[in-house]
Nucleic acid binder design. Sequence first.
DNA 1: GTACGATCTGGAGTGCACTCCAGCTCAAGG
DNA 2: CCTTGAGCTGGAGTGCACTCCAGATCGTAC
Lengths: 138, 138
Amino acid sequence: MAAERFSIGEVATRTGLSVDTLRWFERERLLLRSVSRTSGGRRVYDTADLEWLHLINRLRTSGMPIARIREFAGLVRSGPGNEAERLAVLVEHEQAVQVRIAELAEHLAVIQEKVRIYGEHVLAGTAAGLWAPVAGND
Amino acid sequence: MAAERFSIGEVATRTGLSVDTLRWFERERLLLRSVSRTSGGRRVYDTADLEWLHLINRLRTSGMPIARIREFAGLVRSGPGNEAERLAVLVEHEQAVQVRIAELAEHLAVIQEKVRIYGEHVLAGTAAGLWAPVAGND
DNA sequence: GTACGATCTGGAGTGCACTCCAGCTCAAGG
DNA sequence: CCTTGAGCTGGAGTGCACTCCAGATCGTAC
């Protein structure tokens, strides 16, 4: 219980998102419902809002497009009965992240190899000719 | 030797980049020099061009911004004497990729945990209440 | 009651990385 | 020759994800 309430500024601080981005998320229907307001019209976020924001921020920073997050939010918003669909979205994204990590690992290996070879030549002062603009052309 | 020559279409096929993107890379000065031409004005890429394209495509798909690739190309283009700077660009990117992989791995772990828990509930038919729009509010 | 920082709305603007287009030329096959 | 597909240029357009206003209001501290 003890439902905590946060201003948009506090939520921005806690999530690392900007105030503008938080309002934009809402307009884009990424939240489960429109945030409640004070009598004066200011947004009041509760703990559940904050948790949801942390989740979709994680999805977002791990590469899920906003449109897909909107779909996911739509599924959750429409209540029970579509849990399998929600799960499918998560599983698909899980796989996408795994693929991305594998790609990055391969890129990293190649870059590290280049760094190693290039670094040795730089140390030895014999780097000339590596990616030289006119390397060995007649 | 046996300097192979490729049309822009062949290069597109081999790199996975579109013909438009290849021309755009050139305009953006990401290449080591402007590609040579046939008498009729068509671009002719050689093996070195292709190798360079593979490298910068790797940098690009692993998250290096185009502006940074342009800087790197500029260093290489300006000939010998700045190898340490070139190496620094690569090392910085290597670290950026490592950071990104670590971030993604953390996101993946959280998502996998959610998939696991959510999947169990879906299987058991008791998913209601997970991210329900009004879960447990008074 | 006043100052002032936070928040409000609707809409315009930005940055990045392409992508598409019109109108044209080139080159290989029949 | 003629057709047809690939390639050419310069410039405009697109998609995504924010980001930044202007002009007004709210609310807490003095």
